[in-house]
């Protein structure tokens, strides 16, 4: 009895600690500063999207949003493509080579992005990849390829080898077997990896901070960060930015929750 009451109490309190701040942010994004400070929990007086208009138009968050869309829309499929090719080879090759390729690619997970940022910055400078979206896309692909190979290669290895062999006995080359057998059968793990990459790439801050100079080339997290200094206590404006930056991920979470949990947890085991 007592155990059941304290169980409910802990769960209820933590639910409140999560729900209340999120509600305050959602309501607050429609308020003026005075209104927010006077009553942070109250419903907004009006639903006029003044703050959103200000951040999208006045503060150029609209163009940052588009930049984030472009970077994520290219880097997620590109990472998946390269990782699935490698994962497929790892699943079909045998013995030492399979092990060596997988080990080499996955070892990169142990390298934190902050550890090689100086040489990467220099290298990207030489290749003309600073201050443009192509550089951000490449950096995203590089930094998440190891974990993507880990997830996809790990899954493709568990598919029965007979499937691949049957396909090649039927006269299909490796490419056809990849496209018509390996990819469709790996759909669940590709979906999980895609969600994981989507969250990471969409929220990526370090590389834009390192590489981007021109305000017009900023992605959302960097644009948000630059709000920090400008609008110290203009919380409604910050909140409108937070909502805008979170919206795509939140919408995806509502519909694809299962894959989120599987993907982000698969990513967690990388430690």
């Amino acid at each position: 009895m007592l155990a059941s009451i304290s169980r409910r109490a802990i769960l209820a309190i933590y639910a409140v600690i999560i729900i209340v701040p999120l509600t305050v942010v959602a309501f607050g994004s429609f308020k003026t500063t005075q209104e927010l400070f006077a009553g942070p929990f109250s419903l907004p007086h009006s639903l006029a999207p003044d703050n959103f208009a200000e951040v999208v138009g006045g503060q150029n968050l609209g163009s940052s949003f588009m930049n984030s869309v472009i970077v994520t829309a290219v880097s997620v499929p590109l990472t998946l493509f390269l990782a699935s090719l490698a994962g497929y080879a790892v699943a079909r090759l045998k013995g030492f080579m399979s092990w060596a390729i997988f080990g080499f690619l996955v070892l990169g997970m142990a390298i934190p992005a902050q550890a090689n940022m100086v040489p990467l910055y220099v290298l990207f400078g030489r290749l003309g990849l600073l201050d443009n979206l192509a550089g951000l896309i490449l950096a995203n692909v590089v930094s998440t390829l190891p974990i993507a190979v880990f997830i996809l290669g790990g899954f493709m290895r568990t598919l029965p080898k007979e499937l691949y062999e049957a396909s090649s006995i039927d006269g299909s080359g490796p490419w056809k077997t990849y496209a018509s057998i390996a990819l469709p059968l790996s759909a669940p793990s590709i979906a999980a990896a895609a969600i994981f990459l989507f969250v990471i790439h969409w929220n990526e801050l370090l590389y834009p901070l390192l590489f981007i100079q021109t305000p017009g080339n900023r992605t959302l997290p960097l644009a948000l960060l630059s709000f920090q200094g400008e609008f110290q206590t203009n919380y409604p404006l910050l909140f409108a930015g937070v909502i805008l930056a979170s919206l795509p991920v939140v919408v995806a979470y509502v519909f694809l929750q299962r894959y989120f949990v599987a993907g982000i947890t698969a990513g967690a085991s990388k430690g």
Partner: peptide, 26 residues
């Protein structure tokens, strides 16, 4: 099939050039 060795090549090249090399350069 030797063609299989081509599949991991792009990933290996990207990781070697943009991840392993910069780390060694550090």
């Amino acid at each position: 099939n030797p063609a299989l060795y081509l599949f991991p090549l792009p990933a290996v090249a990207v990781v070697a050039f943009f991840l392993v090399m910069p780390t060694l350069q550090a």
